[in-house]
Amino acid sequence: MPKEIIVPAGSGKPLAPYSPGTKADGVVYVSGTLPFDKNNNVVHLDDPKAQTRHVLEIIKSVIETAGGTMDDVTMNHIFVTDWAHYGAVNEVYAEYFPGDKPARYCVQVGLVKPGALVEIATVAHIGKP
Rank of each mutant, 00 (worst) to 15 (best):
V30W: 13
V30K: 13
V89D: 01
K49T: 03
G67H: 08
P17T: 07
Y86E: 13
I78G: 06
D100L: 06
L56D: 12
H85Q: 10
A88Y: 05
V80T: 14
V27Q: 12
V80Q: 06
Y18P: 06
W83Q: 15
Y93K: 15
V42P: 10
M75R: 14
G67K: 08
G26Y: 05
V28D: 10
T81W: 05
Y18F: 04
F79Y: 14
G68C: 09
D37T: 04
V73C: 07
A88K: 13
P98W: 00
D37E: 12
T52P: 05
H85T: 14
P35Y: 00
G21R: 12
V42E: 09
I58A: 09
K23P: 01
Q51V: 05
Y29F: 11
K23C: 01
D72I: 00
P20M: 13
L34C: 07
A24T: 04
S61E: 00
H44Q: 02
T74G: 14
G67D: 05
Y96I: 01
S19F: 12
V89H: 05
V55R: 03
I59Y: 09
V30A: 14
D100Q: 01
N41M: 04
V62T: 04
S31F: 03
T65A: 11
D47L: 03
H85D: 15
F79V: 12
P17I: 00
A24I: 10
K23I: 00
Y86Q: 15
Y29S: 13
V89G: 07
G26S: 02
V73F: 10
W83C: 10
L56E: 14
E64I: 11
V89N: 08
H54M: 02
D37S: 12
S31P: 09
V42W: 12
D100N: 02
E95F: 00
A84H: 14
P98E: 02
K38N: 09
V89L: 11
P102R: 03
V42I: 11
I59G: 14
E57W: 05
V80L: 06
N39E: 12
D25V: 02
D71S: 06
I63T: 07
V43D: 04
V92W: 05
D37Q: 13
Y29V: 10
D47P: 10
L56R: 03
D82G: 06
P48Y: 03
G87I: 04
L34E: 13
K38D: 04
I78V: 08
D25R: 02
D72M: 02
L45Y: 07
H44P: 02
P35V: 00
A50T: 04
R53Y: 02
V42G: 11
V73Y: 11
D37F: 01
P48G: 13
N90Y: 06
L56W: 04
G99L: 01
I63C: 08
D71I: 02
A94K: 15
L45E: 07
K60T: 13
P48V: 11
V28H: 15
V30T: 13
D72E: 08
W83R: 13
K60L: 11
I59P: 10
I63V: 10
H44I: 00
P35I: 01
F79A: 09
S19R: 15
D47G: 08
Q51L: 06
